[in-house]
């Protein structure tokens, strides 16, 4: 077991990701942030908090997306569906998808398909906390990365949050 990010490092990383997103999105009113259920929403809500503190007078649209019904492994393993809540139109908006760990890329593929059923965004970007490089099974790359790591298949990345496991940290098992 190895710590990839401690609680303190994690909060600095989230601050940086929030700043990068703002830097890259001059029109915040035309930008939407969408967290991917179930685990991406812990990160996306932290990033939203950070953005709201940095830019308090620029409310930014925020939603959560569940991709269960778009998975390509329905027949192998049944996942329990979570809530999707996108109460605004993404038509012609810039959408930033947020997830905690980018691994094979299959979740993001499903998220892109799901997203397109809500409209036609002008642009879609991807923000992840941990990028497990060299493990991709699909041609998908992130635009914002908390930390990139090299890991082998048998290893597991565990992202813990105060809200669900009592402690902010990222560890490699």
């Amino acid at each position: 077991m190895k710590t990839i990010l401690s609680g303190e490092q994690l909060s600095i990383t989230i601050q940086r990701l929030a700043h990068q997103i703002i830097e890259n999105s001059p029109e915040l009113a035309e930008t939407c942030i969408i967290g991917i259920q179930p685990r991406g929403i812990w990160l996306s809500s932290r990033i939203m908090q950070a953005i709201n503190i940095i830019k308090p007078n620029h409310p930014i649209r925020y939603g959560v997306l569940d991709i269960t019904f778009y998975r390509d492994d329905v027949r192998k393993e049944l996942h329990v569906a979570n809530q999707t809540d996108i109460h605004f139109s993404i038509e012609n908006k810039k959408v930033i998808l947020i997830d905690d760990v980018l691994y094979t890329g299959r979740t993001i593929r499903a998220a892109l398909d799901a997203l397109m059923d809500f409209g036609r965004p002008r642009k879609v970007e991807l923000c992840v906390l941990i990028d497990r490089r060299f493990s991709r099974e699909l041609p998908i790359q992130p635009d914002y990365v908390g930390k990139a790591i090299d890991s082998i298949i048998t290893q597991r990345v565990k992202v813990g949050w105060k809200e669900n496991s009592g402690k902010d940290e990222v560890i490699l098992l």
């Binding site: 019904f69 569906a81 809530q83 059923d117």
Partner: peptide
């Protein structure tokens, strides 16, 4: 319980512009 909870999520799908998911394509 599982059926009712899953139905809640499908009800949301039915409010979307595209009221369709690819789950049972095959």
């Amino acid at each position: 319980q599982l059926i009712l909870d899953t139905a809640t999520q499908f009800k949301e799908v039915l409010q979307r512009p595209v009221k369709k998911v690819p789950s049972l394509r095959d």
